[in-house]
Design a protein around this nucleic acid. Structure first.
Lengths: 203, 203
DNA sequence: GTCTATAGAAGGATAGAC
DNA sequence: GTCTATCCTTCTATAGAC
């Protein structure tokens, strides 16, 4: 019973995840989710009263997972350059395994910016960035980094990693025309992006 | 008559542009477009038989406009560094005036990748990139640029300019928490991104 | 060319049997 | 907990008057 509940609820949640990520909130159909889960519409509404509730559950899980992947940046066990290389390697690897998540999350956030407030409620960026600054204070002599340019640098790093996936349709279209495979391109990118940033910030 | 046709068709097209950019294909409603245009639904279908046709007209116009903004990169009247500075200044200025276009175009391309084929049909990247390489051949001694890394470099430049707008909801949410205004941030970005790239490619 | 009215289909949600 | 049947609203699209 509770065992079975769990199974059905999980099946629904996974099916909903697939469909919402693929089609977005507006394009997704409850009927489609039901089919993917191997059940009927009525049962969806039994577990999650409305489409909105189901979407919110899925979105929060995914957005949380995506944002969490930036956390290692703020952990202190590597030099700045090591950290940058580690970040691109691991973050792009995560996106290779979940290539559709960036477009999904960014799109749904833009459609409903209020969502982001809730997600960031317990994240304190002032503290985080100060922490980051402290961590690498001693090596900063080698770099061109001012504290007030930190947001620019962080967004740039995120951009270099995330953009190729968020703009995949476009980039894949362009790469096709010059005979480059998207997956190869992404594999290359781990190192390219890291070296790019390191050269950009080095004095 | 033909004069009036033009007016109505233009009103419809502009209203459709606003609504589609705001809500996306799936979220947009013909009724909503009709209201924005100051007419009724039936008239929409008189000018554009279906929602799909109306959307395609709008999408092609916007995507064309957006992609065209990358063209100056391939024109030959500036040194490489001047070109990079010029690009970020002008491109980000364009995005400041049309902040919602990146998210719209990227999202719709991802939802229907076939669209991109049609748009890129007449663009020959091999030729364009070779041209670019020729243009700056003489100054390449100063830079770390290999021909096969050109796609990586180009995507990186696009990413640095476009990503803040494509991810606006998220970035604005973060900047809010550290007391930075999005518009100020973007204004700063023109110079930051240019210097970032130039340092990254300089030997 | 523009309108009102409505057809026809699709989608979210619920009732009720098992 | 799960299903079938169905309600009700919303949306695209068309018919037909002016």
């Amino acid at each position: 019973m509770t065992e079975n509940d769990k199974l059905t609820e999980e099946k629904i949640f996974e099916a909903a995840t697939d469909v919402f990520v693929d089609k977005g909130m507006d394009g997704a159909r409850m009927q489609d989710i039901a089919i993917h889960a191997g059940i009927n519409k009525a049962l969806l509404h039994y577990y999650y009263r409305t489409k909105d509730q189901l979407f919110n559950a899925v979105f929060e899980m995914i957005a949380g997972k995506v944002l969490k992947k930036f956390a290692p940046v703020f952990e202190d066990n590597l030099s700045l350059e090591e950290k940058i290389r580690f970040f691109f390697k691991e973050h792009i690897k995560f996106l290779q395994e979940n290539p559709k998540l960036p477009a999904f999350v960014l799109n749904e956030i833009n459609r409903n910016p209020a969502r982001i407030k809730k997600l960031l409620k317990n994240v304190h960026f002032e503290t985080l960035w100060q922490k980051l600054y402290e961590q690498h204070k001693s090596e900063l002599g080698k770099y061109n980094i001012t504290e007030d340019a930190l947001p620019q640098l962080m967004v740039s790093i995120a951009a270099l990693s995330v953009f190729p996936f968020a703009a995949r349709g476009l980039i894949e279209g362009i790469l096709d025309k010059v005979g480059v495979d998207f997956n190869d391109y992404i594999e290359q990118r781990k190192e390219f992006a890291a070296e790019f940033v390191i050269r950009a910030i080095r004095k």
